[in-house]
Design a protein around this nucleic acid. Structure first.
Length: 643
RNA sequence: GGGGGCGUAGCUCAGUUGGAUAGAGCACCGGCCUUCUAAGCCGGUGGUCGGGCGUUCGAAUCGCCCCGCCCCUACCA
């Protein structure tokens, strides 16, 4: 509602400025600094002042005189040096919200691909992966809320060195595929945790015993070829770890559409196709001298260019990534076969790739996107730039422009957190705000451990407040609180802020946290539930309230401000999508919860004696509840029945 | 050396893309539970927006120069 008035105001000013001054200006709409200035501010006069060589205040006066009525806007006034402040028609606004006038979330019609999570399938997920998945999943929810068609991909690098390293670890411990299968089946062993430690052990041995390097490369080749015991072990490990990762992510409500695997990218010779294209369009060249002699190199990105094909003829990871990015846009001329992997509770089917046509399930199509977001941490921005440069060099200008590296900074640990975990850090690092830890050394916070800690903490809170409920029910509520807490924590930081992870901070349920947001929604529900417990029904708001009554109630500034805040959910999501910043939605949810908590304390709704006011307040409560629930669901934050 | 990011209250961070008197949370101090749940609410303390110069009606935001920190800059993935 707010958003559509915003658009109308912007268009009206744009048309007027075009007609009057012949200038095309996308008139910005701002929020006035103080709420008593009105609901919208148009600073267009400032933007025009220079070109027109007139005082902003005078231009503002001309604009106000010429603009004419805009539906939903009650008044306009000039303030400061030339701001045009608008006040909305409160009654009409409230009544439109009550009627639920459609916003029109048609979407762009594009097919958007979002790739996220992408954890190496060789060990348990850690908190860095949680940030990736939470950001990616929330961005997907934001896009879908705007009516966009989105496909979620999670690439499985099941043929990479990280898997090979774990396989080497098993081999050196004398294990065969059946032993690994037994480990996976053993209920006393958490396989992903086992591999976490094994990976640290083998990494340490590589350091000590350089001669083991040949094991690594032999294993890697075997896995790539897909034949023999090593390859079988690689498959067993990767499949089990992928299952573990999917389970971890599902705890947070993160789902995917398709898991493309490197093994198929390899076996279906995606690279060969891309290589032909790159060669024939001269996007890469064969270096004949210098340190890159004998390599196929992409020029332009650095002085010596970027090696795409090594002198031994093998392709680098970036090369494969270019092929994969081409596939996403439907530009490769090759495709995967697919088989269903599992069905989620909501009926969504998760597919994975296969190289066998005969395994292929029902006719499904993936890829062929028009816009692609790769959720990958900022340390890989150089490689992402190479991929985009590759598209550009092939002449796919449009697709290059529509390839977005949705980057984010890493999750590091606070020195205090390192100390708690027993991770030794050098003396000089103690006073730094954060320390990057090494997965190779087995350092870090495992995703499931963190989730478990959060559930335990929430469980203590729930069980102390609700002694009447069963343990299972308390556990269910605690889990919802833990998820809300974790997702909010990962989302409250903007993408380019390094998270210095601190356990104590992450475990807080007070202040700007997920539980705060959940609590406000629970309170709103409580009011409505209490009403029914007293034998009353929710009033028929449409029959009881009209524009005039709305106008009367909304004269109260407090009510108007809460309603206004609650009505801006779509606008907030829109802005956040444009900015590519899920944190903005999180911030909005928090501010909305804050506004409601304030309102909640000040106005005991069920005690209200005035009939019209009471009905109005109930409607406000219900409206707020719907808006906050909607926003929370975009953030992937569940709302518990009680807290 | 080159590329990117960061520097805002004691701490952790926002700041709607150049707008009006710079905001939250935590911490600290003082109030509020017989009411729809105190995971809450109200009030208070706390700022040279790293420093300087510039651009203009107007700068935390843009440009240049410094200072400090981080990441990247492989024939590893």
């Amino acid at each position: 509602m707010f958003h559509s008035i915003e658009k109308q105001v912007s268009q009206a000013f744009r048309a007027l400025i075009q007609a009057r001054y012949g200038i095309d200006l996308a008139a910005a709409i701002e929020q006035p600094r103080q709420s008593d200035f009105g609901e919208m501010a148009v600073p267009a006069a400032f933007q025009l002042a220079k070109q027109l060589r007139q005082a902003p205040r005078q231009i503002a006066a001309e604009l106000v005189a010429g603009i004419g009525p805009i539906p939903g806007v009650a008044s306009m006034e000039i303030a400061g040096n030339g701001y045009i402040n608008l006040r909305l028609d409160r009654g009409a606004y409230g009544y439109a919200l009550l009627r639920g006038d459609a916003e029109g979330t048609a979407g762009s019609g594009e097919k958007i691909i979002v790739e996220h999570t992408n954890i190496n399938p060789n060990k348990a997920a850690h908190i860095g992966h949680l940030r990736n998945a939470t950001l990616g999943d929330t961005f997907v929810r934001m896009l879908r809320a705007r009516g966009e068609r989105v496909e979620v991909q999670y690439v499985i690098d099941n043929t990479g060195v990280q898997v090979a390293d774990v396989v080497v670890g098993f081999l050196l411990e004398g294990k065969h595929p059946e032993d690994v299968r037994a480990l996976i089946a053993d209920p006393k062993v958490r396989f992903d945790y086992y591999c976490w430690d094994l990976y640290a052990r083998i990494s340490a041995r590589y350091q000590q015993e350089p001669e083991l390097a040949q094991w690594r490369s032999r294993t890697l080749h075997a896995i790539e070829a897909g034949e023999g015991e090593m390859a079988e072990m690689g498959r067993v490990v990767a499949e089990a770890i992928v299952e573990a990762h999917l389970a971890t992510m599902l705890r947070l409500g993160v789902e995917y559409d398709v898991l493309p695997r490197e093994s198929e990218i390899l076996h279906l010779k995606f690279w060969a196709s891309a290589f032909e294209q790159l060669k024939s369009r001269q996007a890469i060249y064969l270096e004949t001298e210098g340190k890159n002699k004998g390599c196929w190199v992409m020029p332009g990105l650095s002085e010596e260019g970027k090696v795409i094909v090594r002198s031994d003829g093998t392709v680098t990871y970036v090369g494969k990534d270019i092929a994969y990015q081409l596939w996403k846009f439907g530009l490769l001329g090759k495709d995967f076969y697919y088989r269903p992997l599992r069905t989620y509770a909501d009926g969504r089917v998760l597919w994975t790739t296969t190289d066998k046509a005969e395994e292929s399930g029902a006719a499904v199509e993936f890829g062929h996107g028009t816009r692609v977001y790769n959720v990958i941490d900022s340390r890989q921005s150089y490689l992402q730039d190479v991929v985009v440069a590759g598209l550009r060099a092939l002449g796919y200008e449009q697709q290059a422009a529509n390839s977005v590296h949705f980057s984010y900074e890493m999750v590091a640990l606070s020195p205090r957190c390192c100390a708690d975990l027993g991770i030794e850090i050098p003396e000089e690092d103690r006073k730094r705000p954060y320390v990057e830890v090494s997965g190779r050394k087995g350092q870090g916070v495992k995703a499931d451990d963190l989730i478990d800690s959060l559930i335990a903490k929430a469980f203590d809170e729930v069980s102390s407040r609700h002694t009447e409920s069963s343990a299972e029910e308390q556990k269910r509520i605690a889990t919802q609180i833990a998820i809300g807490s974790l997702r909010y924590f990962m989302l409250k930081y903007t993408r380019n802020s390094v998270i210095a992870f601190d356990l104590e901070e992450a475990l807080s349920f007070e202040g700007e946290t997920g539980p705060y947001v959940q609590y406000a929604a629970v309170r709103a529900r409580n009011i409505l539930r209490k009403l029914e417990e007293r034998g009353e029904k929710l009033p028929d708001f449409g029959a009881e309230l009209d524009a005039a009554r709305m106008a009367r109630q909304l004269e109260a500034e407090d009510f108007w401000q809460v309603l206004l805040a609650a009505s801006k959910a779509d606008s907030a999501v829109d802005r956040a999508v444009i900015a590519g910043e899920p944190a903005h939605v999180a911030k909005y949810a928090f501010q909305l919860a804050q506004a409601f908590n304030n309102f909640y304390h000040q106005y005991p709704i069920l005690q209200e004696q005035d009939r019209e006011k009471r009905i109005f307040l109930l409607w406000m409560t219900d409206f707020f509840r719907r808006q906050l629930e909607r926003t929370a669901s975009i953030l992937g934050i569940p709302i518990p029945e009680y807290m």
